[in-house]
């Protein structure tokens, strides 16, 4: 079973990287860009029978390791049939 985990910065947490990229996009002429937030994208391939249980496990993994709950949120997306 495959899952995708999107790790993003919590609202309100400063994203220096996103800010720098935004400024650079403005310089390149994309003045309509209002905000850029950078994040991480993690693909996990795991053995699991029960998708709901797998989702629980993936959320645990995210809490413990993949995301830093101090500053990051995450979203788990199960990818069926791949």
């Amino acid at each position: 079973m495959k899952a995708r985990i999107y790790v993003t910065l919590k609202t309100g947490v400063l994203d220096p990287q996103g800010e720098a990229v935004k400024k650079s996009l403005h310089v390149l002429g994309y003045g309509n860009v209002e905000e850029v937030r950078m994040g991480k994208f993690v693909e996990v391939d795991l053995q699991a029978g029960d998708p709901e249980k797998a989702r629980q496990e993936l959320m645990e993994m995210s809490d413990k390791l993949l995301a830093n709950p101090v500053i990051e949120n995450y979203r788990v997306e199960m990818v069926e049939g791949e």
């Binding site: 309100g12 400063l14 994203d15 220096p16 800010e19 709950p69 101090v70």
Partner: peptide
């Protein structure tokens, strides 16, 4: 935790 600051060395 929300009171943790994030640094931007650049």
């Amino acid at each position: 935790r929300p009171s943790v600051q994030v640094g931007d060395p650049f």
